[in-house]
Structure formats: C-alpha cells, structure tokens
C-alpha cells in the first residue's frame, strides 16, 4: 500500500514532463494548422486572424503556460479539426480502444504464456518446432495484412464473422454507457443483443492484434520459463516427487516478473499501435483519432491524446510495479 502511494505521488511530476515534451515536439511538426483549416485559397489576413484566435502568434512559453493552466481545469482545448472539446472526443473514443486492447492483451498473454509453457515441456517434439516457426513468423507479420486476411477468409469467403465496420451492428443502439466497454455495459444492463453483437465484432480485431503480438510474448516467456524450468530448485522439486502440474505452476510463478514487464510494455504500446487495426475495422478509437490529429496538425487533439496515453502508461507501470512486489518477495521497492 505504501508503495502505491509513493508511486502515485510520482505521477504528477512525470505528467508535467510529458506535457512539456509533447507540447514542444508537437510544435516541431511541419504544417500550419491555420493554413490547413482555411485551405489554400485563404488570404494572409484571414490566416493571421485565425492564428491570433488560436493563440499561435504568441511565444512558445506563453502558449505552454496557458495550455497548462487549462489542463489543470480539465480543459484540453478544442480540436481544431472536429470542433469538439478534446476531452469529449477522447471520452468518446478511449473506451473503444481500451476495450479492444484489453481483450487483445488477455488473449495475447494467455496464448503466449500457454504456448511457451507447452513448448518448453514438449521440448524437442514437433509441437516445440511448430511454436518456433510461429514465433519467427509472427515477428514478420504486419498487423494490417493479418487483419485483411482474416476479413477476407472469415467474413468474405466463409461468412462466419460480422462485417468489419465498427463495434456494433448498425441496427443496434449502444448500451447505456457505464464503463464505455460495450461488452461490459450490455452485460450490466442485460442487453443480450448488444452483447452478442459487440462480442462478435471484437473477435476479428482482437484475433488480429493477438496473432501478431503473441509471438513476441511467447518467445520471451519461452526463454525465461526454460531457464527456470532447468534450474536447481525445479530439479529438486521433481526429486521431491511433486506432481508435474505443481512443478509447472512453481516454474511459472518464478517466471512472472519478466512476463509482467513485457505485458505491461505491450499494453502501453498497443494503445497507439492498434491504429492500423482500428482503421481496417473502422473502430473509431484513439489510434485513429491520433493519426487524424497528426495529419491535420491538430495540436490540442494530439496533445490530449499524448496525455491520455501517458497517464495510461504510467498507470500500467504502477500496476506492474505493484504486481512485481507481490510475485517476488525478494523485491522491496
């Protein structure tokens, strides 16, 4: 508990750093938002007045201080492109992405760790070779290509999967927002039609992300788990006559710290990296929003996204640290 508090107190200064760096970096992007908004035909006067209205004509520091003040009041500015408050845009889109990558993470970690454990136990047998080939291949597969293949075969050819357009069948209305996760919300409100549709629509994108990332997860776990599985205390456990299932659990418990780190890293990474998958499946999530913001030089939106991503990553790492201490009694932070 003490460690959680200590960690949480570190978050504000870290956030400040993130805000400062992204604010500056975003300003380094080429492209003038005023010009983009008004189009090529705009007169220099119109551009100047828009720049003034957006505050772009002032010094960087002044802009930053004003921005910081607004952030502290929960105002991330107005998206230049969508004309909505950035906060509102983010609240609409974040749950979509979070729902997607949460399920993808569950599948990735379960499948990655499971395959790794099985392959180490079946060392030298054909299953081991299959996982090795997969491990190699998964590192080389682009996610959009996997996504397109899945759509082509499972939706277009076989017709098993629903259409890759959004999170819900078009004739359904979204469940009342509680968590923002359609699956959870529909479950909580007892909206079974929504639940089925949302779950079905999650299958392909989750599979896409998982197929691509399980390889890395599996390889890492294989290395760690194989090392532990050959260690003296596992041999001793076997010599003590513990059953095989028990031994696997013991070895897995000892392999957890690096697995947790990798999973935490992957979770943070997916937040932005799922963008191609989101695009293919018209998911309407954060990744798509961020890419649009970059293309349109939409500073407030981009900064908003980076801040949300930073908070998210910081929270994930906080959880990672806490879990670390829980699984390994030798670590006291």
């Amino acid at each position: 508990m003490r460690i959680v508090l200590a960690r949480v107190s570190l978050i504000p200064p870290q956030l400040f750093g993130v805000l400062l760096v992204t604010f500056m970096l975003v300003r380094l992007l080429p492209g003038d938002p005023a010009l983009l908004m008004l189009g090529n035909m705009a007169t220099p006067d119109a551009i100047a007045s828009l720049r003034q209205r957006l505050g772009l004509d002032q010094g960087l520091w002044t802009q930053f201080v004003r921005y910081l003040g607004r952030v502290l009041h929960g105002d991330l500015g107005t998206s230049i492109f969508t004309s909505h408050p950035v906060v509102q845009d983010l609240i609409e889109r974040a749950p979509a992405t979070l729902e997607l990558i949460s399920y993808a993470m569950i599948v990735t970690v379960t499948a990655g760790v499971g395959l790794a454990v099985l392959s180490v136990i079946a060392r030298g047998r054909s299953f081991d070779y299959v996982t090795r080939v997969y491990g190699l291949a998964a590192g080389a597969l682009p996610d959009f290509w996997v996504g397109l293949l899945l759509i082509f075969f499972l939706y277009h050819v076989a017709g098993w999967a629903p259409a890759p357009f959004g999170r819900l069948d078009t004739y359904l209305t979204a469940p009342r927002a509680i968590t923002g996760f359609y699956t959870l919300d529909s479950l909580l409100t007892g909206n079974w039609a929504d639940l089925g549709s949302a779950a079905a629509r999650l299958v392909l994108p989750v599979a896409t992300i998982s197929i691509v990332n399980t390889g890395a997860m599996m390889k890492m776990t294989q290395t760690v788990f194989a090392g532990v599985y050959d260690s003296a205390f596992i041999r001793h456990a076997r010599a003590s006559g513990l059953p095989q299932r028990r031994i696997i659990v013991i070895a897995l418990k000892n392999s957890l710290p690096p697995i947790i780190t990798t999973a935490g890293f992957l979770f943070g990474f997916l937040l932005g990296a799922a963008v191609l998958v989101e695009t293919i499946f018209s998911w309407g999530g954060l990744g798509q929003y961020a890419v649009q913001a970059v293309i349109n030089s939409d500073y407030p939106a981009l900064q908003g996204f980076v801040m949300v991503a930073a908070v998210f990553v910081l929270l994930v790492y906080l959880v990672v640290d806490v879990l670390y201490e829980l699984v390994d009694p030798r670590i006291r932070i």
Binding site: F233, I250, N254, D328
Partner: peptide, 8 residues
C-alpha cells in the same frame, strides 16, 4: 539455497 523455490 539454490534448491529452494525463491518465491515461496
């Protein structure tokens, strides 16, 4: 020391 499970 190496024969004992370090996390139990």
């Amino acid at each position: 020391k190496t024969l004992l499970d370090p996390v139990e």
